[in-house]
Design a protein around this nucleic acid. Sequence first.
DNA 1: AGATATTATGTCTAGGCAGACATAACGCGG
DNA 2: CCGCGTTATGTCTGCCTAGACATAATATCT
Lengths: 110, 110
Amino acid sequence: MEPHFRVWLEQDGEPVFGEGVYRLLLGVDRLGSINQAAKSLAMSYRQAWGHIQKTERRLGVRLLERQVGGEAGGGARLTAAGREWLEHYRRFQAEVEEAVEAAFRRNFSK
Amino acid sequence: MEPHFRVWLEQDGEPVFGEGVYRLLLGVDRLGSINQAAKSLAMSYRQAWGHIQKTERRLGVRLLERQVGGEAGGGARLTAAGREWLEHYRRFQAEVEEAVEAAFRRNFSK
DNA sequence: AGATATTATGTCTAGGCAGACATAACGCGG
DNA sequence: CCGCGTTATGTCTGCCTAGACATAATATCT
């Protein structure tokens, strides 16, 4: 028996930042393109692109700097804002995880 | 902007206890029947019954004591085990909620 | 010019699952 | 003995959405 959780941020009742886009941003940071990040998470580029697009629109923040064409066909990099969101969410999520495990131990370990 | 979360328990990779069944148990405790509990949550009896059934099967624990027919047609009440699960999950969830809000404040209040 | 890997975006479809529908059995009360 | 409100299950359908598919544009390098 183990605890699981999901945590995300909403604005005006619609989700704006969660695990999905977090992983994508991580992947882009590591691999240099949305395409590669999508592949590394076993999802289609189309899906990944839509996810990021929607997040940017809802946040009203540009998370990635894109380059179309060029050396290696193009790519994407985190903007300063993107890096901040990534880092804040990482800590947020980590703190919650710790709390979930502690609460689980307190209430369900017999 | 506000934080949201879900928390549940899994065993062998399949979910066994979460928000849904928690609310149903609360409703049964308050209203005395699965049917009434379902209505109070705007779901069909069929759905509620299946939910509880699955949870009991996976946990291997009888959560409700049922009566078919009789005064008022029948009804259901929490077993001792059911009441314990309810109470443990309630505290667990409440503690996590507090932690989520604290973590949110720490990382996203500007 | 052509090849290439990418970003960018519209559209379609299959499949799963939530919820609806149907039906039976039960026990009490009038 | 019938009606009522419940538990208990099997089945079906429609809807939604995740993912597939298609296509265009772009800049660099050979």
